[in-house]
C-alpha cells in the first residue's frame, strides 16, 4: 500500500506557480528523495503533505487519508522536520522533547527504544538550551522530537542543509536505521550526492517532477554520452562553448568541463577537437566518464 499518493497536485502563490500537475506515490518503508534546486517547489510539496498548506487542485492522500479533510488524523501519525530549525531555542533539550511528546499525547518513556540511538548522542547535553546546540546536534534533537510519537511516516525537508559533511553522513545513517524500523521517509535535499542514498528519487524543477525512478535506473537511462576535459582557462572555454551549444550540453563541473554529446563519440569527439583547435583552446585529454546523478539531473533539465 502506498503511504503517500499524490495526483495532479497544483499550487500557486499569486503569480508564482509552485507546483504544476505533480503526481507520484511513495511506498511503505521506502526512503523517497525529492531532489531539486531552491525554488523547485520542494517545500510547498512538503507543506501540503504535512497538512500545513492546502493545494489549489488535485488530490493528496497521506496514509490513505485526504489532506484536506482528515488532517488531524494525519498529524497523529506523521513526523515532520522543517527546513529550518524550529524547536524552542529557550527551552532545554529535554524540555523540548517532553513538550513535543506531550503535544502528541505520548511520553518519552513509551517511545524511547525508537530514538534511543539518537538520544544517547544528545543526552549529555539535555540541560542545555536548544538554541545553544551545534548544527548537527540541533538536527538530531529535531529528529528525536519528530520521532517521539512513533510516526509511521517521516517528512524531512532539507535536513542536511547547512550541516557539516561528517554530520551529514551520520544523519543519513540514522535515516537508514529509521527505515529499518519500518518507518517510511520522504526527504528533500539540494545535494545530489545524497540523492543516491534514497530508494527512489523525484527530480524536481519549476514545480514539476522531471523524472522519478531509482537512482540506478536514472543513471542507467542517461541520455547521451558524457565526456570531461580539463583546461587551464575554464572561463575562456565557456565563452567559446556558446557557439557550440547546438551540438551538445555543457556545464562546468568543479575545475572541469562536462560535455554531453548525443551523437556517437567516435564522430563527436574529433569534430569537437577541431572546434577547440580553431578557437585556440589548450586542453587536456577528452575522456568519456560514467555519469553520476548530478549529470543526469542537469541533462534532464538542460538537455535537448
Amino acid at each position: 500500500m502506498a503511504v503517500i499518493s499524490v495526483s495532479h497536485l497544483d499550487k500557486s502563490y499569486g503569480k508564482v506557480h509552485a507546483l504544476r500537475d505533480v503526481s507520484f506515490e511513495v511506498d511503505e518503508a521506502e526512503v523517497f528523495g525529492v531532489v531539486g534546486p531552491d525554488g523547485a517547489g520542494k517545500s510547498t510539496l512538503f507543506n501540503i503533505l504535512t497538512t500545513l498548506l492546502l493545494p489549489d487542485s488535485g488530490d493528496a492522500a497521506v496514509l490513505g487519508l485526504d489532506v484536506r479533510t482528515r488532517y488531524l488524523e494525519i498529524r497523529k501519525h506523521i513526523g515532520y522536520l522543517p527546513g529550518t530549525f524550529s524547536l524552542y531555542p529557550d527551552l532545554t533539550v529535554e524540555e523540548n522533547l517532553v513538550f513535543f511528546a506531550t503535544m502528541y499525547q505520548s511520553s518519552i518513556k513509551e517511545n524511547m527504544p525508537l530514538i534511543a540511538s539518537i538520544w544517547s548522542q544528545i543526552e549529555p547535553f539535555k540541560k542545555r538550551f536548544a538554541g545553544k546546540l551545534s548544527g548537527g546536534m540541533k538536527q538530531k534533537l529535531a529528529l528525536c522530537c519528530a520521532l517521539i510519537h512513533k510516526p509511521v511516516l517521516l517528512f524531512l525537508d532539507e535536513p542536511t542543509t547547512g550541516v557539516d559533511p561528517v554530520s551529514r553522513k551520520e544523519f543519513w545513517e540514522i535515516l537508514r536505521s529509521i527505515k529499518q524500523q519500518g518507518i517510511s521517509v520522504m526527504v528533500s535535499t539540494p545535494y545530489m550526492d545524497e540523492a543516491t542514498l534514497c530508494d527512489r528519487i523525484a527530480l524536481m524543477q519549476d514545480g514539476q517532477i522531471m523524472r522519478l525512478d531509482t537512482p540506478k535506473n536514472i543513471i542507467r537511462d542517461f541520455n547521451g554520452h558524457l565526456v570531461t576535459l580539463q583546461t587551464p582557462d575554464i572561463f575562456q572555454l565557456l565563452k567559446v562553448m556558446g557557439q557550440y551549444a547546438a551540438h551538445c550540453t555543457f556545464y562546468p563541473y568543479g575545475e572541469n568541463l562536462h560535455v554531453i554529446f548525443y551523437e556517437p563519440l567516435e564522430k563527436a569527439i574529433p569534430e569537437f577537437e577541431v572546434f577547440l583547435q580553431q578557437n585556440d583552446i589548450t586542453h587536456g585529454e577528452i575522456e568519456q566518464i560514467e555519469p553520476n546523478i548530478e549529470d543526469c539531473f542537469i541533462e534532464i533539465v538542460k538537455g535537448n
Partner: peptide, 14 residues
C-alpha cells in the same frame, strides 16, 4: 519567525 509554530501546527493539537 522561529518556525516553532509550524512545528506545533503539525502536531495533532487543536
Amino acid at each position: 519567525e522561529l518556525g516553532t509554530i509550524e512545528q506545533v501546527n503539525v502536531t495533532p493539537i487543536k
